[in-house]
Amino acid sequence: MAEIRAEMVANVWKVLVAEGDDVSDGDTLVILESMKMEIPILAEDAGTVGQLKVAEGDVVQEGDLIAVIE
């Protein structure tokens, strides 16, 4: 199980997966927007999206949980 957390304060611009989706290592889960950059959040392991904690338009703080890959 891998927790994926925000590395910086950002807006959630796009959510590309849903809970229950299978993902591979390197897949884009969510795209954040910060510093006027679109920053993809990638899966670091293959697995299933167990939890998805953000929705488009949310603001995440550094360290906030974005998703859990099981």
Binding site: E7, M8, S34, M35, M37, I39, P40, L42
Partner: peptide
């Protein structure tokens, strides 16, 4: 590396 923290 723009992939991480936008490269900041």
């Amino acid at each position: 590396n723009p992939l991480r923290l936008g490269g900041c």
